[in-house]
């Protein structure tokens, strides 16, 4: 009963100005409200206005997204080429401080002869560390592998030597040239001597 009352109230609130509806019997009134207040209770003009408003809203939204997308596409076309170029230059930029330090090392070596060999050597050691630090920050690590099993996925065998023991067979005995890799890509295979 309480439920019906609520429905009645809603019904009357929405149709205060419509006397013809009010004249109908109780059963009809309840069933009408159950059919859905929206369709039966608002005037068609209001309904239409609301739908038009919504349509305009969605149209504007669609147009905005389309415009965003068109711009995106336009930019995307040129941005791939530009990104490649930028990445290259950015990488070079990362290594320029190494070059600066090499110049400094050369300047000082030329200036003072070889009398400070130890200090210069220490400096060049630091420059080397600077270089490998940059590589490390870029996610690039060394492929060494001395004493490890030979793995053609990472190693390039350039020489075969006699194994000194059974265990040494098919292992790397010497890294001739250090290799480098990222997490999922080899930049350069390490050149190795393999025992057989």
């Amino acid at each position: 009963m309480g439920k019906d009352l609520v429905k009645d109230n809603q019904f009357e609130d929405n149709t205060q100005n419509d006397s013809s509806v009010n004249d109908e019997d109780d059963v009809d009134r309840i069933s009408r409200s159950e059919d859905g207040e929206d369709t039966s209770l608002t005037k068609p003009e209001e309904e239409l206005a609301k739908v038009i408003e919504e349509r305009d809203k969605y149209l504007a939204m669609a147009q905005r997204i389309q415009a965003d997308f068109d711009n995106y596409k336009k930019r995307n076309k040129t941005s791939i080429a530009a990104a490649y170029n930028d990445a290259e230059l950015e990488t070079v930029g990362k290594f320029l401080p190494v070059l600066d330090n090499l110049h400094r090392a050369l300047d000082i070596s030329g200036e003072k002869g070889s009398s400070h060999a130890e200090a210069i050597c220490k400096g060049v050691e630091m420059v080397t560390k600077q270089f490998t630090d940059i590589l490390e920050k870029m996610g690039i690590t060394e492929i060494g592998g001395e004493g490890e099993p030979f793995d053609p996925m990472y190693h390039d065998a350039v020489m075969s030597v006699e194994a000194e023991s059974e265990e040494e067979k098919n292992t790397v005995t010497e890294v001739v040239l250090m290799g480098y890799k990222t997490e999922d890509k080899v930049i350069r295979y390490s050149m190795v001597k393999v025992a057989n």
């Binding site: 000082i108 009398s115 400070h116 130890e118 200090a119």
Partner: peptide, 9 residues
């Protein structure tokens, strides 16, 4: 490295 230098290198 090579931040500065004096007579000692």
């Amino acid at each position: 490295p090579f931040i500065t230098a004096d007579a000692t290198g």
